[in-house]
């Protein structure tokens, strides 16, 4: 009998596999300089260069009032349709969805895997930017 899951369950063997699982997902990325971006991950490479769509960037700044010496935290938001993030600015990346509060896919049941695993062809998505060449 045919199994309900025909493709082998792709386990996370190296950290970049986790990023691959995030392709086409709405992700949260923490960047250097107290910046964070949320957007849909269109492409990435081994440097963590990212191409994000439908992006919202949040910049957090701490201002010191020269008179009262009080620190106040400000956030600035901006929206962009498409954004290229250079990999060296990346600190942390994750999917802020509830599914990702579950363990990694190798431990999820089939239903949950199909819910959040991208279609198989997405694994074959060519890397758009390969800066390692030339």
């Amino acid at each position: 009998m045919a199994d309900t899951v025909t493709a082998p369950i792709t386990s996370v063997e190296e950290p970049l596999d986790l990023v691959r699982l995030c392709l086409d997902e709405h992700i949260y990325v923490k960047l250097r300089g107290d910046r964070e971006v949320r957007g849909r991950l269109h492409a990435f490479d081994q440097h963590l260069n990212l191409v994000l769509g439908d992006v919202e960037e949040t910049i957090t700044t701490v201002e010191l009032d020269p008179e009262t010496k009080e620190e106040s935290v400000h956030t600035t938001n901006r929206k962009m349709d498409m954004l290229f993030v250079r990999g060296d600015g990346v600190i942390l990346g994750l999917i802020p969805s509830i599914l990702y509060t579950a363990p990694l896919p190798k431990k999820l049941d089939n239903h949950a895997i199909n819910l959040f695993r991208p279609p198989r062809e997405r694994y074959e998505t060519p890397i758009l930017f390969d800066l390692s060449k030339d």
Binding site: I91, L94, Y100
Partner: peptide, 22 residues
Amino acid sequence: ALEQTEEYANGQLKNKYGDAFI
């Protein structure tokens, strides 16, 4: 790649994430 991630800044728990890539 971390599972069941907890983020601490200045010793205080700031966030909980499922899976995180660092």
